[in-house]
């Protein structure tokens, strides 16, 4: 399925393998098989985990340093739980790649990036209707927002900087 990040279309190197049995460099496993995949990971494979948006942080937290990618499912564009999960994972110190997977729309790209996502995976039909250019344009349509802790471009820090330079 098409994948994109803040620079545009991206090649997907991850192979879905629920139980972790696939012979590949980057395997994406289910939460149920995460522990097993990590413990049997003598071969230096990269392990990612695909989660539903009902998974609790506590389930993943002990393993965050060993995981390279977390793919969070968005069952619909109206269900915003994934944004909070991403935020929690970043708070908890997760440094790997965060992927949003599901029918998000271009207008949610900026929100996803601000919450800590790196990339979005959408269906081909979806991508055909909303080409990459729309996503990139939507991502920059609001140049600065008001929340601190959601990316560098926030108005509060900009005001602070302006105060500091006596502007």
């Amino acid at each position: 399925m098409p994948l994109l990040d803040r620079n545009g279309a991206k090649k997907d190197v991850w192979i879905i393998s629920d139980d972790g049995s696939a012979d590949a460099d980057h395997i994406l496993v289910s939460v149920a098989h995460l522990k097993q995949a990590l413990s049997g990971n003598g071969r230096g494979r990269r392990i990612g985990v695909a989660i539903a948006n009902t998974v609790k942080l506590a389930e993943l937290e002990p393993h965050l340093s060993e995981i390279d990618l977390v793919s969070i499912a968005f069952p619909s564009h109206g269900d915003g739980r994934g944004f909070s999960i991403a935020k929690q994972l970043r708070h908890a110190g997760f440094k790997g790649t965060l992927r949003a997977s599901g029918p998000l729309i271009a207008d949610q790209f900026a929100f996803a990036l601000a919450c800590g996502f790196d990339e979005i995976e959408v269906s081909s039909a979806h991508a055909a209707r909303q080409p990459i250019e729309q996503w990139l344009k939507a991502a920059s349509s609001i140049s600065q927002t008001y929340q601190r802790g959601f990316g560098a471009h926030n108005i509060l820090d900009a005001r602070r900087a302006a105060r500091a330079t006596g502007k």
Partner: peptide, 13 residues
């Protein structure tokens, strides 16, 4: 008002 405007995390509650 400012903080809640287009809040990235809380726009799809």
């Amino acid at each position: 008002r400012q903080w809640s405007s287009l809040h990235p995390e809380f726009d799809y509650l």
